[in-house]
Design a protein around this nucleic acid. Structure first.
Ligand SMILES: [Mn+2]
Ligand SMILES: [Mn+2]
Ligand SMILES: [Zn+2]
Ligand SMILES: [Zn+2]
Lengths: 141, 141
DNA sequence: TCAAGTATTTAGATTATATCTAATATGACA
DNA sequence: TGTCATATTAGATATAATCTAAATACTTGA
């Protein structure tokens, strides 16, 4: 991955490019697998420099706030994260909780009247059902 | 609310209509406010009979599995619940985490090819931004 | 160059949320 | 009524995330 590009995007958002923060970002860019914070923590610590759990959570929070990373809440499970590169929707498996990317397509905006004073920042489409791994065992489960 | 209707829908799903389970369902039908499990637990215990925390969670899990109730995961906060009566979308506030209903409208299904072996059960549209209460304090916040 | 201020990291404690356990109670139905 | 599956319970436990306060690293500008 392009180290310089990561540095740019961090600094462009007013965040220092620390080794710990860089490692989180690089890991997310290399694995579009929607890892949990715990998985990211473990992964970035396989290589040096070591990063504490608090720092991993802090950095994920900062990256989400900066709009570089998205947090996906999954009922009953740890949150998952991905880089906000290309726009896409998500598929979440009822059975195993896996989050998978779905091709992006435009979503019709809500009628003006129904918004009131709310300010809409984004619009997210989530498909739910059984993933490729879980679909076959549907009956047994 | 129609007590008999609640009883019917529980038994129609193979669930006994126990006082504790009924209380959860009745509370959700009276308050379309998306309460958390903790709020439901507290609310149903203001009246008799008393229901334990484990039972409240167990019943919410059963009701979700039966398709009568929906669980809405909110990043960094407790899950929220609502009855699956009329179809609707959700608006989730970035700042305070409030979940609000939005008028339902049809969502275009994904292209056939993009699904693979996945089985889609439902399709959920989530709007994010600032709610009516939080929008004014945007800058300060 | 260096002092001072700010941002970041850290280990471990703490909180928040949800589930598990194993004992008891309840209800369906033969 | 007796049997058995279902449901409830208090409290312990697990899991996920945040907080704390001290140390470290970087930035700025005299
Ligand atoms: Mn994704
Ligand atoms: Mn709702
Ligand atoms: Zn799955
Ligand atoms: Zn709000």
């Amino acid at each position: 991955m392009d180290a310089e590009a990561i540095k740019q995007s961090l600094e462009g958002s007013g965040l220092r490019c620390t080794p710990q923060r860089y490692a989180v970002m690089a890991f997310l860019m290399e694995h579009n697998r929607h890892p949990t914070a715990a998985e990211i923590f473990e992964a970035v610590n396989r290589a040096d420099p070591r990063s504490s759990r608090a720092t991993t959570y802090n950095n994920l929070r900062d990256l989400v706030q900066a709009g570089l990373v998205r947090e996906v809440a999954v009922e009953g499970r740890a949150a998952r994260f991905d880089v906000k590169g290309m726009r896409h929707h998500h598929f979440i498996c009822d059975r195993c909780g896996e989050v998978e990317d779905m091709a992006w397509y435009d979503v019709p905006k809500p009628a003006k009247g129904s918004l009131g004073k709310r300010i809409v920042r984004e619009c997210e489409l989530i498909f739910r059902g059984l993933c490729t791994k879980c679909a076959p065992r549907r009956a047994s489960g």
